[in-house]
């Protein structure tokens, strides 16, 4: 079923909307949630919560593309779940990525500045536009989808060590790019 038809089902308030959404995008939603939570049960619950979020958002929203809209909700719900779990000291893919970025991109020497996340997103998009396709894949799949190094190695045909090295360089380049934009990290 195409996305428009699924959205129409949501507009009709038909429960088949969730069934069709799950049939079409369930696997990728689960995988994204698992990457973040490192836990199958949590991932399933996050995806269910995300479906509920989609149910509440459509209508009035008519997202296009539907998939990235659903994945954003899955990602947000999963990150919230991880933050809750962190209080219980459970390790997650989110925490791993956070540690990497903290180590590379943050500095205690600069005064704490409040940056607008939207503005930062724009700078990151500029940074992504300047990357090769493989580097962009590595960055987006690592820090948006929170894929593991093993998955990235499988997806790119690179060795895990190479993936790690390239990501380290990418974080350094991002730091430089943000610095050039006047964002002091």
């Amino acid at each position: 079923m195409d996305d428009n038809a699924i959205i129409e089902l949501f507009f009709e308030r038909s429960e088949n909307a969730i069934v069709e959404l799950s049939a079409k995008y369930g696997l990728i939603c689960i995988r994204t949630a698992e990457n973040i939570t490192f836990n199958k049960e949590d991932a399933q619950e996050c995806v269910n919560d995300a479906y509920l979020g989609v149910w509440n958002a459509i209508p009035p929203a008519r997202p296009k593309p539907l998939l990235s809209y659903v994945l954003r909700i899955v990602r947000n719900v999963s990150i919230n779940r991880v933050q809750h779990n962190n209080a219980l000291k459970r390790r997650s893919g989110y925490q791993e990525c956070l540690d990497e970025l903290e180590a590379e991109l943050t500095s205690s020497e600069t005064p704490e500045t409040v940056y607008d996340a939207k503005l930062l997103s724009g700078y990151i998009e500029e940074f992504l536009d300047g990357l090769s396709r493989t580097d962009r894949l590595l960055f987006v799949r690592r820090y948006w989808y929170l894929d593991s190094f093993g998955e990235l190695a499988a997806a790119t045909g690179l060795r895990q060590g190479t993936v790690r090295t390239r990501l380290t360089r990418l974080r350094q380049r991002l730091k430089q790019h943000l610095f050039n934009q006047g964002v002091h990290v």
């Binding site: 990728i28 990525c97 940056y115 996340a117 997103s121 990151i124 894949l137």
Partner: peptide
């Protein structure tokens, strides 16, 4: 700035980047 803010900012990137790599086949 915290890593969380950067990770949040990555979360806000445009759909086109998300869709570009939504399905990466294993090489």
């Amino acid at each position: 700035m915290t890593g969380k803010l950067i990770l949040d900012a990555v979360g806000g990137i445009s759909d086109r980047y998300i869709m570009e790599f939504v399905d990466v086949t294993q090489k």
